[in-house]
Design a binder for these strands. Structure first.
Length: 488
RNA sequence: GGAGAGGUGGCUGAGUGGUCGAAAGCGGUGGAUUGCUAAUCCAUUGUACGUCUAAUUGACGUACCGAGGGUUCGAAUCCCUCCCUCUCCGCCA
């Protein structure tokens, strides 16, 4: 939330900054400044009445103690005046209405872009900051999008997820699930090593919490809401993590506070119909490791840069090409004053896709959530600066790995940094979940043999590759050949 | 879900209608003192908003004792509604 004092004292400045986000005069401050004047007048008036009312209350107490007749004229006169004030005060209901209106307006206003944020109308005017890594351009025509790779390996299942939930849900199976877990552990370990303290926060969160970071009231249609309770499914761990410190006054020495968290994230993706309908890119539920910082205002720009480095460090460790862009004023999120997006290379579409978004929110969220700090020896309190960034979106990382590490034979190499986490170097077809189609894609396996494998599996699951010998027609030679492509 | 108890300042914990923003203790801060660790003594000790002042770590005012209403000249104290916490029982991973 913006500072009403700043709006009062510097309306032109605030207006100009808001206009950088949208030139259409979408944000109009005059209603706000008018109401503010009215409110202050009403407050002063009430203040004076209350002062007199308190005085009367004390006087009556004193007089009665001092021996005055409680039913005497003197007391009666004071009571009468007290009653008069009460009537006047009850007529000041206006004040509450104005205050509410001001709050409503204030909560709708986005953060002011920082000085350094490039001015632009839309996504198209975002500024590329840097690139890293060689874009993977595969030879031949075997390039597949990640959903095909995943389905062929039997590690991604979209159809069944849709059956269980609805569209825009995915399931991970076998090694796919293990890979997701490995990625989460890997990312958490890296961020913990970078100084972030891990938290497992609630993922059902209340309305105040969502208001504190700016998702509400404006973007209610973006979150899932529980019908019977004042609880919502968290759209990102930024929300519970930042709100951890809501309505607290921290000691300056406690800053900076670094937290990371793995949580599932839930987004309704309203208005994105027809976009990214396939694959892991845009789902209603996805996993993410998030970083959040609460910092001293003076350090927030450098803390922001460091957080960006923490995000890109993951991609570098996984050897995934990426680029960093800085969002222009027209594309900046509601709560952010400055934001970098990290985009990973997806060879199947030949584009970079957002995999992390690192925002400096300044004191905008701290003001909403009332997160302050106090410096020793100084009077008063200040608002902290809050920052958040993905470190990283796990599903999109999985997609990037499948696509960037795919090999001509349909298998997928495991990035070196992940191999110890996953316990394997290559993603292969899983014998126990493979479909006939997947099996026939293996070298030396025809339709009939695939049928026999499935028939054998019907009786008993394969606990090791050696079990394939039970399948009629598979000898040691074929088994050796297949062992590079299959797992159990 | 049923039954009971309770929500007071950084913490513990008094306070059941009147100079209560709130005793006391602890903690914190400043100072004094003692030839060490430590102890003792004195002072001070929340947040927000507003008015005044050139300005302040200044003066004054107002609000805040879970939240919101009500009664009253006056409420932390009485009444109503809601929220939350704790204990016991039930259910449950």
């Amino acid at each position: 939330m913006l500072d009403i004092k700043q709006i009062r004292e510097n309306p032109e400045f605030v207006q100009e900054r808001l206009n950088r986000r949208s030139s259409e005069g979408e944000y109009n401050l005059t209603a706000l400044t008018d109401l503010d004047k009215q409110l202050r007048q009403a407050e002063t008036e009430r203040n004076q009445l209350q002062a007199r009312s308190n005085e009367i209350g004390k006087l009556i107490g004193q007089k009665i103690k001092g021996g005055s007749d409680p039913k005497g004229e003197e007391i009666a006169a004071l009571k009468a005046e007290g009653n008069e004030i009460k009537t006047k005060l009850s007529n000041l209901d206006e004040e509450k209405r104005i205050k509410l209106e001001i709050d409503t307006l204030l909560l709708q206003l986005p953060n002011l872009p920082s000085d350094s944020t490039p001015v632009g109308k839309s996504e198209a005017e975002n500024v590329e900051v840097r690139r890293w890594g060689d874009e993977y351009i595969p030879q031949g025509k075997n390039l597949k999008p990640h959903w095909e790779i995943g389905e062929a390996l039997g590690i991604l299942d979209f159809k069944r997820a849709v059956k269980v939930a609805q569209s825009r849900f995915a399931s991970l199976i076998g090694v796919g699930a293990a890979l997701e877990r490995a990625l989460i552990s890997f990312m958490l370990d890296k961020q913990i090593a970078a100084g972030y303290v891990e938290v497992i926060p609630p993922v059902l969160i209340n309305t105040d919490t969502l208001t504190g970071t700016g998702q509400l009231p404006k973007f209610a249609e973006e979150s899932f809401k529980c019908a019977e309770d004042d609880l919502w499914l968290t759209p990102t761990a930024e929300v519970p993590l930042t709100n951890f410190y809501r309505a607290e006054i921290l000691e300056a020495e406690a800053l900076p506070i670094y937290h990371c968290a793995y949580t599932p994230c839930f987004r309704r993706e309203a208005g994105s119909y027809g976009k990214d309908t396939r694959g892991l890119i845009r789902l209603h539920q996805f996993n993410k490791v998030e970083m959040v910082k609460l910092v001293h205002p003076e350090t927030s720009p450098e803390e922001h840069e460091k957080m960006l480095d923490n995000a890109t460090a993951i991609l570098e460790a996984l050897q995934l090409p990426y680029r960093v862009i800085e969002l222009c004023t027209g594309d900046l999120g509601f709560s952010a004053k400055k934001c970098y997006d990290v985009e990973v290379w997806l060879p199947s579409s030949g584009t970079y896709r957002e995999i992390s978004s690192c925002s400096n929110c300044g004191d905008f969220q701290a003001r909403r959530a009332d997160i302050r700090f106090k410096e020793k020896g100084q009077k008063g309190t200040q608002f902290v600066h809050t920052l958040n960034g993905s470190g990283l979106a796990v599903g999109r990382t999985m997609a990037a790995i499948l696509e960037n590490y795919q090999q001509a034979d349909g298998t997928v190499k495991v990035p070196e940094a992940l191999q110890s986490y996953l316990g394997r170097e290559v993603l292969l077809v899983n014998l126990n979940t493979a479909t006939e189609k997947m099996l026939t894609s293996l070298p030396g396996v025809g339709r009939k043999l695939a049928e026999r494998i499935i028939a054998t599996r019907h009786n008993q699951i394969f606990s090791s590759i050696e079990d394939l010998k039970r399948v009629p027609g598979i000898g040691q030679q074929l088994l050796n050949k297949l062992s590079g492509y299959i797992i159990c």
